[in-house]
């Protein structure tokens, strides 16, 4: 097991290396002037594009440029983000908690809704409920995240005036900046509780409802379908028949025996699900005015801020690789029959 984990950890730098090669390679399609724009931090420097091109060796070949970039990255310098006007690492530290909070707020309901609906669909196989849920899943799967987000903003926030957008109301943010509110985690819900400011925790929670709901609608459909089919598999197995034969209540059979085993394939879904969530978070942050990493990256993509984009993809690659490793480890923990040696 340890062997397996170490081997997988060693693969992560290789994946990141290949990713950076692909993106840096494609960037060679840009002219040196376009690439130089990524290093411009003030209006004054625009006049001196040639100096920047000179300084960063942007007219040189791919390998020279890659070596320069990789050297900086290894020294811990991911570059300067034109979009946020500060070093990339500083921005990541600032914005990561916001995206994290949104992801965590969406994750639990996504899993609960997916597993619960999947179980219901399987136990009512081919009944009315199953048919309805089948259509619901296909519809949920078909809705682009930004469409759901816009519907929620227009109907629920705009029309009904419920919940809110942004992370916190502007007045509270100003108040926090002046007070001795300590940021333990960067998550406003948790920090609010830790500082004894219940109002902040509640406001932050209120503003998480709509973006999280958008993610739940789009992502949980996939979990539900996997859960349904794996639940049907389990319900058809001999041990379920035995459990029923010895007179256990149907509830015990379904929820205690079958469902626990049916959850195993759902763990495999965690990787693709996280991928879908990250894609969704980029768009959702933009629509809900949520100052996280996704909003930053979307802005960078629009302005061709290559340093920021490269760093963002590296970060996502790292997150996905670690998540996939955790999934494989969780798999062994949950199902002792699986061995990786």
């Amino acid at each position: 097991m340890l062997n397996f984990i170490v081997r997988r950890l060693l693969q992560i730098p290789v994946v990141l290396f290949v990713l950076s090669l692909i993106i840096m390679g494609l960037m060679q399609l840009l002219s040196p002037e376009q690439r130089a724009a990524a290093f411009v931090t003030s209006d004054k420097q625009i006049e001196n594009l040639d100096l920047i091109i000179e300084k960063y060796h942007l007219r040189e070949g791919f390998f020279v440029q890659y070596k320069l970039w990789a050297g900086e990255v290894i020294r811990g310098n991911l570059g300067f983000s034109r979009i946020s006007k500060e070093p990339v690492l500083t921005t990541i530290q600032k914005r990561f908690p916001a995206s994290m909070e949104l992801a965590l707020a969406a994750f639990v309901p996504i899993v609960l809704v997916g597993v619960w609906l999947g179980t219901q669909a399987a136990t009512h196989r081919d009944g009315l409920l199953d048919q309805v849920l089948r259509v619901v899943a296909i519809v949920g799967w078909s809705l682009p995240t930004f469409v759901v987000a816009i519907w929620l903003v227009a109907w629920v926030y705009g029309g009904l005036g419920w919940f809110g957008i942004g992370r916190l109301p502007g007045s509270l943010l100003i108040e926090l900046a002046g007070s001795d509110f300590r940021k333990y985690t960067g998550l406003f819900t948790v920090d609010g509780l830790l500082n004894g400011r219940l109002d902040i925790a509640l406001e932050a929670l209120k503003r998480l409802v709509l973006p999280a709901a958008a993610l739940v609608i789009v992502v949980s459909a996939g979990i539900m379908r996997v859960m349904r089919s794996s639940m049907l598999d389990e319900l058809g197995k001999d041990y379920v028949r035995t459990a029923r034969a010895k007179g256990l209540a149907e509830k015990t059979v379904v929820y205690k025996h079958a469902r626990r085993n049916a959850l195993i394939p759902v763990i495999t879904m965690a990787g693709p699900m996280l991928g879908r969530m990250i894609g969704g978070i980029v768009v959702i942050e933009l629509i809900f005015n949520f100052p996280g990493l996704g909003e930053w990256a979307a802005g960078a993509a629009l302005q061709l801020d290559v340093t920021t984009l490269l760093a963002f993809v590296m970060l996502i690659g790292l997150i996905m690789a670690v998540a996939n490793l955790l999934v494989d480890v969780a798999y062994v923990v949950v199902d002792p029959r699986i061995r990786y040696e």
């Binding site: 991928g275 990250i278 894609g279 980029v282 061709l304 690659g317 690789a321």
Partner: peptide, 14 residues
Amino acid sequence: SIPGLVLAMVFASI
């Protein structure tokens, strides 16, 4: 291994 939308966004930007 990279979410499709993220990579497509970067490619489209370039």
